[in-house]
């Protein structure tokens, strides 16, 4: 059987597929629209909200969530799920903090943490693929394992005093005017750009979408389905490790209980960003918008002094529900056309 080397040219598109093509952007456009509406509402309600720095702070405060959401997008696009990301973030922070405390070179520490995260993800992917166990239960085991390993390293919080990490935590890159960003933002945006390139310009990316669209069809097309399915979990693990390093830059410590429930935020960001949970549809830029929406919810609640922090969780839950219902409507429409 011959292997498809390139996708057929789009010249023979029918009217139906063009309709689907437009509908495909609907959830992501809804996300971007919602973000703009929320930002505008904030600008009207609160003086000082409409500034570039408020927007940039959204990025600065959520760098790790952006990277996590990127990894999660890959996994969800194949129709899987990764519940272990929050724990892997905590584990990465603990490994980094413990090794830095032991006097390791920061670059070596970062390299080792990234390697650990990627390996952890690949191993989970292998178990999922080789033994045909549901991703949900395997990554649940991963959640337990990574969180438990945090406690094995140390039950107490470890402070990071390494000069490189503190420099990264305090560094600000000035932009035009009085605006500035943190180095973490650059890293996060580079990760988004690479993910965008990989998903849309490489054969690997097309395979990811194909698996989400229909695994057996992808297999029959001769695509490297098993390898790709293992690799997406590796990517998610790597992204979790990067997020762990970014979180370390942000918090300058390692703590076993850090990042609890972060997997829910990451999944919520991806869903709010318009990626279909059944796989096959979605964009990494949508996930970025999803993270920004979660961030702006938090900003709203801190601007509105009377609202307590737990409203964040309730609002995120409500947003998640709203977008799931929207997806439901959207997928029905696609079936009709």
């Amino acid at each position: 059987m011959s292997v498809l080397t390139r996708t057929p040219a789009p010249q023979g598109r029918t009217r139906i597929s063009r309709l689907q093509g437009k509908a495909r952007y609907a959830p992501t456009l809804a996300t971007v629209g919602l973000f703009l509406a929320m930002f505008a509402a904030g600008a009207i309600m609160y003086p000082g909200f409409l500034s570039g720095q408020v927007f940039l702070n959204l990025l600065i405060d959520n760098t790790f969530l952006i990277v996590l959401a990127v990894g999660m997008t890959f996994v969800i696009l194949t129709g899987g799920i990764d519940l272990s990301v929050g724990s892997v973030v905590a584990l990465s922070m603990m490994i980094a903090a413990a090794l830095l405390q032991a006097g390791w070179n920061p670059i070596a520490v970062i390299a080792l943490v990234l390697l650990t995260g990627a390996t952890f993800g690949l191993l989970m992917g292998l178990v999922i693929q080789v033994f045909e166990i549901q991703p949900f239960i395997v990554t649940l085991a991963g959640l337990f394992l990574a969180r438990g390993l945090c406690y094995v390293i140390s039950v107490d919080s470890i402070t990071v005093t390494d000069p490189f990490f503190t420099a990264m935590a305090q560094a600000r890159i000035p932009l035009t005017g009085n605006l500035f960003i943190a180095p973490g933002v650059v890293i996060a945006l580079v990760v988004v750009a690479i993910a965008f390139y990989v998903l849309h310009q490489t054969r690997f990316g097309r395979t990811v979408y194909a698996i989400g669209g229909g695994e057996s069809s992808a297999l029959l097309m001769g695509l490297a389905v098993p390898r790709t399915k293992v690799l997406v979990y590796g990517i998610s693990g790597l992204c979790s490790a990067i997020a762990g390093i970014l979180f370390s830059f942000y918090s300058l410590s390692g703590y076993s209980l850090a990042a609890t429930g972060l997997e829910l935020d990451a999944i919520a960001a991806v869903v709010v960003g318009g990626t279909l949970l059944t796989g096959g549809y979605g964009y990494v830029l949508g996930s970025l918008a999803g993270v920004l929406i979660l961030g702006i919810v938090q900003t709203f609640i801190s601007y509105e002094g009377t609202l307590s922090s737990w409203w964040t969780r309730i609002v995120i839950g409500a947003l998640l529900l709203a977008f799931i219902l929207l997806q439901k409507l959207f997928s029905r429409k696609v079936k009709l056309t």
Partner: peptide, 10 residues
């Protein structure tokens, strides 16, 4: 998952 996320807030 919706209730898992929002429930503790509630």
């Amino acid at each position: 998952l919706v209730l898992m996320t929002a429930g503790r807030g509630l």
